[in-house]
Amino acid sequence: MIDEAHAASAVRFEGVTKTFVERNQPTHVLRGISGEVPVGKTLTLVGPSGSGKSTLLSLCNLLLTPDEGQVYINGREVRQWSIPKLRQTVGMAFQTPTLFPGTVQDNLELGPQLRGERLKNPEEWMEAVDLPANLLGRSVEELSGGQRQRIALVRTILNGPSILLLDEVTSALDPSSTQVVEKLITDWKAKSGAAILWVTHHLDQARRLGDITWYVEAGELLEANDTKTFFTRPETEQARSFIHHKDAELDDTDGGGEEA
């Protein structure tokens, strides 16, 4: 199912819909989203809370299955992949880092261990994210919030993904930790050439780090543009008022962090 015409897109959505049913109440989380993210580009996803951004990310590594439509990763539909291989190729990091009891090294080794491999160079990875190597033997209980998120990210990227899904990874962090995590990701991206899908509440972050930006509201992709154009000349009324509203909010609260 390799599709030559779109081989250059890292991620491509074709008319995906997703509906959750809870207590017999259907919620239409995604209502027919189509779009693509080229290889090596960073897509920043913005929009109100509950608009379906996180759900869209989860379709890329098949943690959720679309009800309708297709999701192509490197030209191959997600359901045609070997699923562990897909999830190794499409790495994912969450808002709250979940670390397992044990040492930092134990946590870094999780990915390789699943495939019966050993992590060869944990010290180099620590160095790459600006953490001291002597942290490796420490219990994860001793880490700060920013350190935890960095460890969770390293754990994901040492799996060697070519696409990285980031779901509000800095919204629980203070400004200086946010900066460190942003740098970690941009440095890694520069080296690896991976594509990134970055859901963020922080409009300034979306503006600084994106090549392209999507505005998602109520499960629909209302606007897709290159990031610069999106923030200087938004085309839709909804995007314009969202940016305006968020900028006003930024003055007193620094923007992010309210999405559960």
Binding site: N61, L63, K85, G111
Partner: peptide
């Protein structure tokens, strides 16, 4: 379930993700 999802998203098979 968060732990299970983290393991799955690192490429674990269901038995690997649920073993602990």
């Amino acid at each position: 379930r968060e732990e299970v999802n983290v393991l799955l998203s690192l490429g674990a098979t269901p038995p690997q993700a649920i073993r602990h």
